[in-house]
């Protein structure tokens, strides 16, 4: 069953720039999909529309059965609760500890303290940061901070995890550590969509790859088809 379906999606920004042009795409539950392409090819716009940071100009985007394009501004939270998002710049709150940063996402829903504690400890364990729960983001390395951000994104148990250049700020070794964490999460059943320009990682991971160019799908590679070319 398709978890995400995009049909004839167009996105034209107010300044007249066409970011996405008549795009059709479907992603199945449990898939791990890379979206690659040159800067300005529309890959960021594509995933921003998935979590409704941007609204498509035309077309239909179904995420878990909800038409994201039609959702009202004040109902956005409904879609956000179904997915987790991870960014290049982590977006952690510097004044909260690692534990508090992750718990933040649960406290909003008024869960009991014990339940919050259990869930947070579980995800921190999953990303390998259980022993750093009391530290502040500034005391962590870039890779560790990204793992906190991943923990926060998945603590709600979302069906989809959207990653926007999660390794963009990290060195090669740390990037692979992050990829391992993401793969582990994927194996637990979470669908992962990751935008990246790091084709070396994409080559190593051997997942489905969608290559964009000027807002259109240039080429699609099934699992294992993509080969990283060293220039």
């Amino acid at each position: 069953m398709d978890l995400i379906t995009m049909r004839h999606v167009h996105k034209v920004y107010k300044n007249g720039v066409t970011a996405i042009h008549d795009l059709d795409l479907s992603i199945k539950k449990g898939e791990f999909v890379f979206i690659i392409g040159a800067t300005g090819c529309g890959k960021s716009t594509l995933i921003k529309m998935l979590y409704r940071e941007e609204r498509p100009t035309d077309g239909q985007i179904l995420v878990g059965g909800i038409d994201v394009a039609k959702i009202k501004n004040r109902k956005i939270y409904k879609i956000r609760r179904k997915l987790g998002v991870v960014f290049q710049d982590f977006k952690l709150l510097p004044k909260l500890t690692v534990y508090e940063n992750v718990a933040f996402a649960l406290e909003i829903f008024g869960l009991p303290k014990a339940e919050i504690y259990n869930k947070v400890v579980k995800v921190l364990e999953l990303v390998g940061l259980k022993n750093k729960a009391k530290q502040y983001p500034t005391q962590l390395s870039g890779g560790e901070q990204q793992r906190v951000a991943i923990a926060r994104a998945i603590v709600n148990g979302p069906k989809i995890l959207i990653c926007d250049e999660p390794t963009g700020n990290l060195d090669e070794k740390t990037s692979m550590e992050i990829m391992n964490v993401l793969e582990a999460i994927n194996k637990l059943g979470t669908t992962i969509i990751m935008v990246t320009h790091d084709t070396e990682i994409v080559g190593k991971m051997k997942k489905r790859v969608i290559e964009l160019d000027s807002g259109r799908i240039l080429k699609e590679y099934q699992e294992g088809e993509y080969v990283h070319e060293v220039n």
Binding site: Y77, K78, R80, R81, L93, A105, I108, R152, N156
Partner: peptide, 11 residues
């Protein structure tokens, strides 16, 4: 970030 993790406007 609150918006991102699914907080409603009221939240």
């Amino acid at each position: 970030i609150m918006r991102l993790v699914g907080a409603s406007n009221m939240n």
